[in-house]
Amino acid sequence: MSRDAILQAVRTALGRKPFQKPSAGPEPILQVHNWTASERVEQFQSALVAAGGQVSRAPSMSHVREIVEELVAGRPAVASLAPILAECGITSLAGVQSSFSGTEALRHACASATVGITSAWCLLAETGSIVLRASAEEPRLLSLLPPVHIVVVPLRRLLENADEFFGLLPQPADSSSATVLVTGPGRRTLHVILVE
């Protein structure tokens, strides 16, 4: 059996016995800058723009709908079930589909949509990143398939950096099968709307 052969080869190479406890190992170094809230916003905006993304600030939820409507510009769009999207009135926009009968329907809708609208679990100021976690409300493909991605996030979810995020990450990662840190638009268009 390959499993046993490999484990045996490894133990022999290391001179370790089966079930031997590991030696003590070094801890990682997690670093934060301790920025103020406004420093974080400023840093996030400049980092995201430098990475090729776009940022808008909405003073309140009612402004979000306008911004999104303009960005969508009547093109086929899919949206997640994140509560903030419903609260901002995005899911009721014409041409925006947010309920799907099943996985197949979801895949098909995402593949043919031009715009995907989601929220985010949090944002990382230092690198201008968005953090997406798969959940009942946030399917994975919404943020992956459509060529335009709009993200609506309340400012209180703006963390400093990946170090802070990893320090906070619930362990074990039982609650979600996928957590993704996206930095910059890549091959697509990325627009983040920060909501006060």
Binding site: F100, G102, A134, S135, P139, L141, A178, T179, V180, G186
Partner: peptide, 20 residues
């Protein structure tokens, strides 16, 4: 910083709509 960092922990959870 890498453009895309995915942490993938297995098959979709019962309440998730997509994923393997």
């Amino acid at each position: 910083f890498p453009h895309h960092i995915s942490l993938l922990s297995g098959k979709r959870r019962d309440d998730e709509m997509d994923g393997p």
